[in-house]
Simulated scan of single mutants.
Amino acid sequence: MVQPNDLLAVLVDADNVPPAKIGAVLAEVARFGTASVKRVYGDWTKTNLSSWKPVASEYVIQPMQQFANTIGKNATDSALIIDAMDLLYTRRFHGFCIVSSDSDFTRLASRIREEGVIVYGFGERKTPEAFRNACDRFTYLDVLDEAAAESTAAALTRVPPPKLRSDTKLISGLRISVTTASGEDGWANLATVGQLMRKQQPDFDSRNWGYTKLSDLVRATELFLIETRPAGGLQVQNKKKNGD
């Protein structure tokens, strides 16, 4: 697991990410380690990227110039991929943060993970499933917007319990993870359940349903029991195991 002092490389696809999102992305990245390399890729001669320039300066992100030499070919993606592999081979980084909604980075994420290095993906809801699943962890940009909002406003976006229970993918994943992580007494460490969920679904995040904490999401389903563990932390159990 990445620690706060672990080094991370943050590589941003400027063609694919609004500059207004980068502050929230970097705040999230800080939870996983130190962003010692921050680069943003694009053809800076294009006027549509002009809004990126003050943002890159504010957050000390190095702009990487790549001319679009051929129409229909994304030279920016190629430049990002080449740099990522060069950085990977330095063996200095514990994790890579790829900020893009582009499926072209699917193989890159897989290749980095083959080296035993963690990949954090960030992108919009339109991000293809292949790229999301190629990452160890994938976070939607709109979720970061909500996390930065006032708590009262964020609460309004919470998915209500009946709708949560109708989300078969969510409930099935939680039930299986709880069962897998549980001991003989039927109780499972909630943190372990969260880890198992993310291994199955890299884009799993309680904030996707409007809940800041995993425990809040699990409680809201009203299908599980949650208690404080004797040694600290929380434990969870399928209600049906108790006959409820």
Rank of each mutant, 00 (worst) to 15 (best):
D185G: 05
R198P: 08
L164V: 00
N133W: 11
A191E: 12
F138V: 07
P202S: 10
E129R: 09
A134I: 06
A154D: 00
R165G: 05
V143I: 09
G116C: 04
D216M: 01
E184Q: 07
G186T: 01
V159S: 11
A191R: 15
V159P: 07
L156M: 05
Y140P: 10
Q201G: 04
A147G: 07
P128A: 15
T157K: 06
V218C: 08
A130L: 15
A153Y: 00
L225C: 09
T139W: 09
S172T: 03
K169V: 01
D205Q: 05
D142R: 03
G210Q: 04
A220T: 02
P160V: 06
L225S: 12
V143K: 10
P162A: 14
T127K: 10
R158T: 01
D185Q: 07
P160I: 04
A188K: 04
R219S: 10
P202M: 11
A134S: 14
E184P: 06
D205S: 03
D185C: 11
R158A: 02
V143C: 10
T127R: 13
L214D: 12
D216E: 12
T152L: 01
S182V: 02
Q195G: 15
K163V: 00
W187R: 03
T152D: 03
D136S: 13
R137P: 12
G194A: 10
S151E: 00
Y140S: 09
A130R: 14
L217T: 01
Y211F: 08
L190G: 08
I176G: 01
P162R: 09
L217V: 02
G121R: 05
E146P: 00
T179W: 10
A155Y: 00
A188N: 07
Y120D: 04
A134N: 13
F138A: 11
A188I: 03
I118H: 13
N208P: 04
D145V: 05
V193G: 10
T179N: 09
G116T: 04
A148Y: 00
V218W: 13
W187G: 10
E129W: 09
V159A: 09
F224Q: 07
T152W: 05
L190F: 13
E222A: 09
D205L: 09
T212R: 01
R175T: 10
N133I: 10
V193N: 14
K163A: 05
L144V: 08
E129Q: 10
T139E: 11
G194I: 14
A154P: 00
T139R: 11
I171L: 11
L144E: 08
G194T: 11
G186F: 02
F204L: 07
A220V: 02
R219G: 03
I118G: 08
D136V: 09
Q195N: 15
G183F: 06
A148H: 04
G123Y: 11
L217D: 03
V178I: 14
S151M: 00
G123Q: 05
F131M: 12
L164A: 05
G173V: 08
K199A: 15
V193L: 08
S206R: 05
L217G: 06
S172A: 12
P202V: 03
D145Y: 01
I118D: 06
A147Q: 15
G123R: 14
R175A: 05
N208R: 09
S166D: 13
E129C: 03
A153T: 02
